[in-house]
């Protein structure tokens, strides 16, 4: 999985590419942890994300609880389906 992080002031945009599975999800956690503590708003770009499992979803919850604002962008229908199964679609700001 490739993680592309762009920081702009107190907001950061993290673009994910590939599979966010049990093996790779810790990488997302690491990427967020590495951000400056001034970053309060995070935007996750799922445009190139092919796959997400519960481990990935768990990381999203961790990030959600950590920051002030979390926006998920460019969600593919497949992943949207998984959000729907878990009720994430109702709690997350999906654009």
């Amino acid at each position: 999985m490739t993680i592309q992080t762009t920081v702009n002031g107190n907001s950061a945009e993290i673009a994910l590419e590939g599979w966010l599975d049990t093996q790779t999800s810790p990488e997302l956690g690491t990427a967020v942890d590495e951000l400056d503590s001034s970053v309060t708003d995070i935007v996750l770009d799922f445009k190139k994300l092919d796959y997400i499992s519960s481990a990935g979803l768990r990381q999203i919850v961790v990030i959600y609880k950590k920051v002030r604002s979390l926006i998920i962008r460019n969600v593919t229908p497949e992943i949207m389906e998984i959000f729907r199964m878990t009720g994430f679609d109702k709690r997350l700001n999906i654009q």
Binding site: S54, L57, V62, K65, I82, F88
Partner: peptide, 21 residues
């Protein structure tokens, strides 16, 4: 037991997803 969204950082979504899929 459908957990609250905030509790999902402790896991518990796996079986739910399997059952749904």
């Amino acid at each position: 037991n459908k957990k609250d969204f905030e509790e999902y950082d402790m896991g518990g979504m796996g079986i739910l997803l399997v059952r749904q899929t």
